[in-house]
């Protein structure tokens, strides 16, 4: 007979260790992230709701002409009509915060992984792990380290959503034709110059596809994170589910879907306009 595995115990003691010894770090991080989310929410609520919708619609028109503008305008109005405007603003702030964080972490890691084979060998299985481990599992250590609220939600969604950005940045860097890096080298570029002036611009469309996926994944995770107190539309969905309110659940779910479609089309559009400039 094989005894019960001790892995669970190890993870628990690791988390406990961190709680005790790195409390200051986690508190500081917590404060920063909360401030970021709050400033997003504050920014979105500067004016009345129709003003924000108007501004976003205009931006949509600039980025993607009529189809995107219509989708954005009507979609957001519909969210208002469904009664989830406030909650959606909060969710959007969470998604944006975790996306920004994912880009800040994911792009440099992706560059390293695309440049150094050793890094990619370590990161690859780690990312497989991060993506296939059921998302709920991240919530527990996040709660223990950061307490209930929006911050563990963000942390969990970053862990869940960062892999596509890393993977596709890696891919983008690797896909830069060899003769272009050779050309950059042959004219005496420093490694930084090569990265900024040649590799990253050429990898950008691929990288952006990764960011698009990261946005979608963090939205889905933010909804789940409502279980640990990350406020937003997810909270409404969660409440409806626990109270077996089918209609309310559907409406809240619809708001999530609308937000998801708008975010997706927006980021897709940005990728395409990037392509067009090439």
């Amino acid at each position: 007979m094989i005894g019960k595995s001790p892995i669970g115990d190890w993870v628990e003691s690791a988390v406990n260790f961190l709680t005790v010894h790195a409390e200051g770090f986690f508190e500081g991080l917590s404060t920063i992230l909360e401030a970021v989310v709050n400033s997003f929410t504050w920014m979105f609520q500067l004016g009345p709701f129709w003003m924000l919708i108007a501004i976003l619609t205009i931006i949509a028109f600039i980025v993607g002409r009529w189809s995107l503008a219509l989708l954005t305008g009507i979609g957001l109005l519909m969210i208002v009509w469904l009664g989830y405007w406030e909650a959606t603003i909060l969710t959007l702030s969470l998604v944006l915060t975790s996306t920004v964080l994912s880009i800040l972490i994911g792009v440099p890691l992706g560059i390293l992984s695309g440049t150094i084979n050793g890094v990619s060998k370590v990161l690859r299985p780690l990312m497989d792990f991060m993506q296939t481990m059921p998302a709920f599992v991240y919530l527990l250590p996040a709660v223990i380290l950061f307490g209930l609220g929006i911050v563990p939600g963000i942390i969990a969604s970053v862990i869940f959503a960062v892999p596509p950005t890393i993977r596709l940045t890696d891919l983008g860097i690797r896909q830069v034709p060899q003769d272009m890096t050779e050309a950059a080298n042959s004219f005496g570029s420093t490694p930084w110059q090569r990265l900024w002036k040649v590799q990253l611009p050429i990898a950008l469309p691929t990288l952006m596809a990764g960011v698009n996926q990261t946005i979608m994944l963090s939205l889905s995770m933010v909804v789940i994170a409502s279980m640990i107190g990350a406020q937003g539309v997810g909270t409404e969905v969660y409440r409806a589910v626990t109270q077996l309110k089918i209609g309310q659940g559907f409406e809240a779910g619809l708001a999530v879907v609308l937000l998801a479609i708008i975010l997706d089309r927006f980021s897709q559009r940005l990728i395409k306009s990037n392509h067009a400039r090439h």
Binding site: D179, E182, S186, F187, P201, H278
Partner: peptide, 14 residues
């Protein structure tokens, strides 16, 4: 001192 020209041009598309 050294300039190089490549078979497939290797121009920067962006």
């Amino acid at each position: 001192s050294i300039g190089m020209v490549f078979q497939k041009f290797a121009l920067f598309p962006h």
